[in-house]
């Protein structure tokens, strides 16, 4: 039995006693990236299906969020780099084995598209024609006919973006908590759910709100299933994975994970949404806000707990 272990001559900043390489900006980015992916996915699907006149909250108002979210997320990512002057090196190569590499490329394509999407609604946002800026109107006139084509491109891009936030973490076999294949789908589902919650907040009609409440409830059920899968997978895993699971189930992060993510962030909003679907009068903003908060805390828990899990020492 191992009694004691000393590591001498080593107290490296951010590495010892456990990793603190990725800080809050990464968690915030993972949340914002998932949120943007969710909104883009829904607005694109609605546009492709030709229902954009019925669900204006999703295709018009909610799509104001992704460009802001992605820009802030990218800023957060660059802020957490320690050698940021060399950021351009990301775009001198494509390395398919590195999720961060293709993620950076997907962001480079998706972010401008989300800005262009908002511009296609420019004259609808700025009702007073005398206040419109000339060249933006020209861009709008140019882009509007291509809205459907943009939607076709954005559907796969948003799915990749949403999955990428999870795969970014699951690609590290050195961190047993992250190293499970379910994390990609789980983060995508969570991102879609936060996207649906934002659309509920910005919905313009009760029909739209009810549709996205239904979608969100289904996504929450799916997300809970994936979380159970994740825990079960680690429960049946190797020693390092068992130790990783302990952090979430009966460890340092249990309160955060079960209290704030699962109960307050998933079960409570799911019950309220269920009541709404059953016809009870409930404030729709409450479950939506809880889902957004739960999604954010989920990213924080996963990023921080994952960096504690390791193979040695």
């Amino acid at each position: 039995m191992q009694e004691e272990l000393f590591i001498s001559g080593r107290d490296i900043p951010n590495i010892d006693p456990y990793l603190q390489i990725w800080h809050w900006p990464i968690s915030v980015y993972l949340f914002l990236g998932g949120l943007a992916a969710g909104i883009i996915f829904f607005s694109s699907v609605i546009t492709v299906l030709g229902k954009d006149k019925e669900y204006v909250g999703a295709v018009k108002y909610a799509t104001l969020v992704p460009p802001v979210a992605l820009s802030l997320g990218l800023l957060a990512l660059v802020y957490d780099l320690t050698h940021p002057l060399y950021t351009y090196q990301l775009y001198t190569t494509i390395r398919l084995e590195s999720p961060m590499s293709w993620g950076a490329w997907v962001l480079l394509i998706t972010t401008p598209l989300t800005f262009m999407w908002v511009l296609t609604y420019y004259s609808e946002f700025v009702k007073n024609s005398s206040k419109r800026i000339g060249f933006l109107v020209k861009i709008e006139e140019f882009l509007v006919p291509y809205r459907k084509q943009m939607a076709y491109a954005l559907i796969p891009l948003s799915i990749i973006l949403g999955v990428y936030t999870g795969i970014l973490l699951s690609a590290f076999n050195a961190r047993p908590l992250w190293n499970n294949a379910i994390l990609g789908p789980l983060f995508l589902t969570s991102g879609l759910s936060t996207g649906a919650a934002t659309i509920i907040l910005l919905a313009k009609s009760s029909a739209e709100r009810h549709l996205f409440t239904r979608i969100d409830l289904a996504l929450i059920v799916l997300e809970l299933g994936l979380i159970v899968h994740m825990i079960m997978g680690m429960h049946a895993g190797s020693q390092v994975q068992l130790e990783a699971m302990q952090l979430l189930v009966g460890g340092e992060f249990t309160l955060m994970f079960f209290g704030f993510v699962i109960i307050l962030g998933l079960l409570v909003p799911a019950s309220i949404e269920l009541m709404e679907i059953l016809g009870k009068k409930v404030p729709a903003a409450v479950p939506a806000m809880l889902i957004l908060l739960g999604g954010l805390i989920f990213r924080f828990v996963m990023v921080e707990a994952g960096q504690i899990t390791r193979y040695l020492y």
Partner: peptide, 13 residues
């Protein structure tokens, strides 16, 4: 670029 991905990926820290 100092992204830290390699540090996260190293089982030996």
């Amino acid at each position: 670029i100092g992204c830290g991905a390699c540090i996260e990926s190293c089982p030996y820290d």
